[in-house]
Nucleic acid binder design. Structure first.
Lengths: 207, 207
DNA sequence: GTCTATACCTGGATAGAC
DNA sequence: GTCTATCCAGGTATAGAC
């Protein structure tokens, strides 16, 4: 890992814990193992470090969520068929995988915390936070549920409301259990109960 | 309003906008209209101002949520009967009132933002945030739904999961529309769709 | 209880030797 | 690309006059 990458890495951790203003350039330099002045050979300001993180992590999040089995809009139709063919058990595994990605993935979790802290300070940060953690999930799932209703896998209902009912509890549990790693099992149990209930309410063929 | 109260008042606004570390003692003093040094006649440190806010707002939040028509546990049985007698329209009005309280009430909204920003910096802050915005709503509603199921107003289901399904979307919408006052109508429409769907799924007698 | 003045420190950032 | 040295602005907090 280059020094520049190491700076990004350590800065993200510190920003996620103490916020932008709560983290000094010296804190970052110490974590990296260099003097604070040396840091300015890699970035021209503290702000540039922060902006670089937001840029880079945004794209990395996109790639990762794709890699984690979330198909893109083009593949929505086949995705819907795929999800419909899933057993309840498969559906549970999938929702857990997504939940744990946002909760524990080394980049996703720190990035989410950093944006949560900084969203009120800067409008641009807020837009990124909103886009990734509010809009993206709902939009994708609404499209997916719409297709699944069309195919008769789900009972017809408003896809947007269904997406809200599916995603909001995940978002809530993410916030609730964020700082309690020892209660991960409890979190997963609640998540499972949520998905079971969701499936009970909306799936045409119970399994 | 005494100077001490005014300091709390202005500090809360600034902490909610810029965070604890993003707010200087001089910022607070300027907002109050005194010199920063004078402020130390009322509080012995910046930290003491913050702690006082957390203390005072916590109790004020309790009182207010009671005042806003959320009955205590002792009155749960009559509350359940009361909610059951409500028309769908009344249920919608009530959920909107609660949503708007957390979104716009002059104390609740600022307090929520402040805790959201500061939750990762200090374990105690996190506990307060968690208690007020995660546990309280779910616990109360789970007890209420349990009673309503017992009385046959709601279809029997896990009260905890029902509470999660009811409250999580409110929590999500609160976060989503927090910084977009111009989209309040949109937020209320989504909230309404959510409550309608919730009622459709769980209420025994549709109206 | 408010002011001015000041002490003391830490923060971000630059210059220049190696 | 790292270091030491330094600058300057701004932060928290105290002392003492009014």
């Amino acid at each position: 890992m280059t020094t520049k990458e190491l700076i990004i890495e350590k800065a993200l951790t510190l920003f996620a814990e103490n916020g932008y203003q709560g983290t000094s350039v010296k804190n970052i330099a110490d974590a990296v193992g260099i003097k604070d002045s040396s840091l300015y050979k890699h970035f021209k300001s503290k702000k540039e470090i922060f902006d670089t993180i937001v840029q880079e992590m945004s794209t990395r999040m996109e790639q990762m969520s794709l890699g984690y089995g979330l198909p893109d809009e083009a593949g929505m139709e086949s995705a819907a068929a795929l999800y419909g063919a899933l057993t309840l058990g498969d559906l549970l595994d999938l929702s857990k995988k997504i939940f744990l990605f946002y909760l524990k993935d080394e980049f996703a979790a720190r990035f989410r915390r950093m944006l949560t802290i900084e969203q009120y300070r800067d409008r641009e940060i807020y837009e990124v936070y909103r886009q990734i953690f509010m809009e993206a999930g709902i939009t994708y799932q609404a499209a997916l549920f719409e297709e699944m209703c069309r195919q008769g896998i789900f009972r017809s209902s408003s896809p947007e409301v269904m997406a809200l009912h599916f995603y909001a509890p995940i978002f809530f549990l993410l916030n609730k259990y964020d700082q309690e790693p020892e209660k991960e099992e409890e979190a997963l149990n609640v998540l499972e109960a949520h998905v079971r209930e969701f499936a009970r309410v909306y799936r045409q063929n119970q399994d």
